[in-house]
């Protein structure tokens, strides 16, 4: 699909447009936010201790309130955006690439290798992912890289199964037989003939998975097994604010709202992206309307 038509489609769907604008804003915050707020997010300011939100006489970082050390919540949210989104994006990419490769291998191999891959995916799927992640992270510790690996593993089966199913269908087509007759090696076949056909599906799953992974990381950090202080994510901010519910509700409320809005925008845009990429779905849904 042409870029210009995609943009035109986006402009005609108000809900998807709002979602896209929010995601662009949040991505911008993740890119430059920590530099903008600078020291305001970490330095102690006792005059602003537990300042309530919507006090516009203060500096803008305090507009959503401040914590018990006088650090502005908005500044903390800006600082945490990079870790939160970074971990989610990295997890999606890792699981999409590794899962895609494993799935293509499993689809092409008619021998034992494919079976081993699929059975190990069954093992991953046979147990609640959050519990598995809790145990593994307790062993490894909550460094961001570990969280990325653990989250990626729990999401692997989706990509492996989809990629394999697609390959099973693709490999029966005529152009694959033609390539084989012309002497294409398995690696060449996988890279040049199969990957381009599987990739769009994987991208759509990845876009739908982004919100899921972000929520999973937030839950892990909330339970205290994810990112460890002084690193900070939105989920960890909610956990830290939980103890002050009765006295300072804004500590836990705002970061959670940012999680929710970002996940919502990601889900809306992913749903729109799926429909925009599929002309039959687009027709069924009434051209530009969203799901």
């Amino acid at each position: 699909m042409q870029k210009s038509t995609l943009l035109a489609l986006l402009r005609s769907d108000r809900v998807a447009l709002v979602a896209a604008v929010w995601l662009v804003l949040i991505a911008g915050v993740a890119l430059v936010g920590p530099e903008i707020v600078g020291k305001a997010a970490t330095s102690i300011d006792l005059r602003a201790r537990n300042a309530p939100p919507f006090d516009f006489s203060r500096d803008w970082v305090h507009w959503l309130g401040s914590d018990s050390l006088g650090r502005g919540i908005l500044a903390r949210i800006f600082l945490a955006a990079r870790t939160t989104l970074g971990i989610a994006l990295a997890s999606v990419l890792v699981s999409m690439i590794v899962g895609g490769v494993l799935g293509i291998v499993a689809g092409l191999s008619r021998g034992r290798l494919g079976k081993v891959i699929m059975r190990s995916m069954d093992v991953v799927m046979s147990f609640p992912s959050l519990l598995m992640a809790l145990i593994v992270l307790y062993v490894l510790g909550g460094a961001p890289a570990n969280i990325v690996v653990v989250l990626a593993i729990t999401r692997l089966p989706v990509y492996v199964r989809t990629a394999r199913a697609e390959v099973l269908e693709i490999r029966e087509r005529a152009f694959i037989s033609a390539a084989l007759v012309m002497g294409a090696r398995p690696f060449h076949l996988a890279l040049h003939h199969i990957t381009p056909l599987v990739l769009p599906t994987l991208l759509i799953i990845g876009s739908l998975d982004f919100a899921y992974v972000m929520l999973a990381e937030s839950a892990l950090s909330f339970l205290g097994m994810g990112v460890q202080p002084p690193s900070i994510t939105w989920g960890l901010m909610v956990a830290e604010g939980r103890g002050y519910l009765a006295s300072a509700w804004w500590l836990a409320f705002w970061p959670g709202l940012f999680i929710m809005l970002t996940a919502l925008a990601a889900n809306l845009l992913a749903g729109w992206f799926r429909i925009a990429n599929d002309p039959t779905l687009r027709a069924a849904q009434g051209d530009a309307s969203h799901a």
Binding site: L215, V238, L245, M260
Partner: peptide
């Protein structure tokens, strides 16, 4: 219904729990 279902799939359950406590209990 569609909007609400998408919103519910995007809600972090721990935060919903905390907001519920905030509203209905506190």
């Amino acid at each position: 219904a569609s909007m609400l279902t998408i919103a519910s799939a995007s809600a972090p359950d721990f935060w919903v729990a905390i907001v519920a406590i905030l509203v209905f209990a506190v």
